[in-house]
Design a protein around this nucleic acid. Sequence first.
DNA 1: TTTTGGTAAGTAATTACTCACTCACCATAT
DNA 2: ATATGGTGAGTGAGTAATTACTTACCAAAA
Lengths: 216, 216
Amino acid sequence: MIMATKRLKNSKKASGQERQAGIIATAASLFAARGFTGTTTREIAKAACCSEALVFKHFPTKRALYAAILAEKVPLTELLTAVEDAAKKRDDRLVFTMLASHRIRRGADPTLLRLLLFSALEGHELSNMFFKNQHRIFYDYLAGYIEQRIREGAFRRVDPLLAARSFMGMLAHHRLLHEIFRVPSHRSPEDCVESYVNLFLDGVQAGTSATRKTRS
Amino acid sequence: MIMATKRLKNSKKASGQERQAGIIATAASLFAARGFTGTTTREIAKAACCSEALVFKHFPTKRALYAAILAEKVPLTELLTAVEDAAKKRDDRLVFTMLASHRIRRGADPTLLRLLLFSALEGHELSNMFFKNQHRIFYDYLAGYIEQRIREGAFRRVDPLLAARSFMGMLAHHRLLHEIFRVPSHRSPEDCVESYVNLFLDGVQAGTSATRKTRS
DNA sequence: TTTTGGTAAGTAATTACTCACTCACCATAT
DNA sequence: ATATGGTGAGTGAGTAATTACTTACCAAAA
């Protein structure tokens, strides 16, 4: 999880932007591993293979470096356009499976989840924005989709926001168990995704005319 | 959340046990609020209305004090016997509603949840035990109940453990949103509990002969 | 030569933890 | 009644190490 940014021995200097990006990446994994108060600027410098002074040349304070990390946007356009495509075809199963697979997959990196939780627990001011970009965007989108499917009669009349949160809750809890609490899994990620999607879709489709694909 | 242990002005000394319990309670709320590395022994002493030296008379190190907090058991017998009662009557709705209401309720104290998350993120050795006592006990019990109901034909053939985690995931996510990320709620706790229980029961009862109580 | 990338060696403040030391209280011997 | 000595509760003033951050300076490009 923590890895030093190796620098080539013969190239003495890196460009300013490279260095800055390197420091951000290195610090992000340290903050994710140990939290804000648990990480020292000395550790960051050492892991980034430079002096503490250089870190402070790029970022006025430790908090500013932390804020720069939280403010970084994760590109999600690829996933969202693919989901949008499935949504247009009204392929409920695919929509939910894609979202679930994006969160639950083999070798998932717990860094962002840990950053998210640490920032919220430690009460950083940018925590809310980070939460919105990383998490809320999913269940807000999902709530919109569910609302539409209810109007179309494909789902029963549930509270769309609560239903979306329920589904995201299953996924978040799953990640919490395995990535944070280190609970060993007795099923493959794909099996888990399928189970969660089945459970949820059966819940929202109960009593409607929607056909459920049978499982083996 | 954080409150100093007030001592009466005329009674100069407290008994050893009282002091120890007071320090534990005070430190627990501080650790929950700011984490282990984010809390100083000076703050703990000040909040407990005594000197730092006295804190170290009771606990050899800061970590030992933290460990004493995590090792404390929360009495859950009252809830579990009540749930056991509903389980005997095969009142599925009541079983799930009681468990959900215990987690989601007005004025719920986020202290234990914060301690749980902080201890896991910061990687304390006792974190697993704390997790087991605080959380795992619920979904392990629930998994057993679900397994039984499947055998009885009341629930469809789902993976009991995954199903139990799904339900607990809805609740954990709900608490995370409101108690940690401070997302305002648009529904009452009771409404949320009802929605979650309905959604879940419809999911596991789909295709069985189980009757679902209609909602307004 | 000026700008840029980089650092060694500081600083004052804070950290967990220790030590030498009171003080109140209480049973018992005088 | 009162002096005696023991004990547990409690603390002020430290300690060495670590913290975030600064200053003065250097070397290699441009």
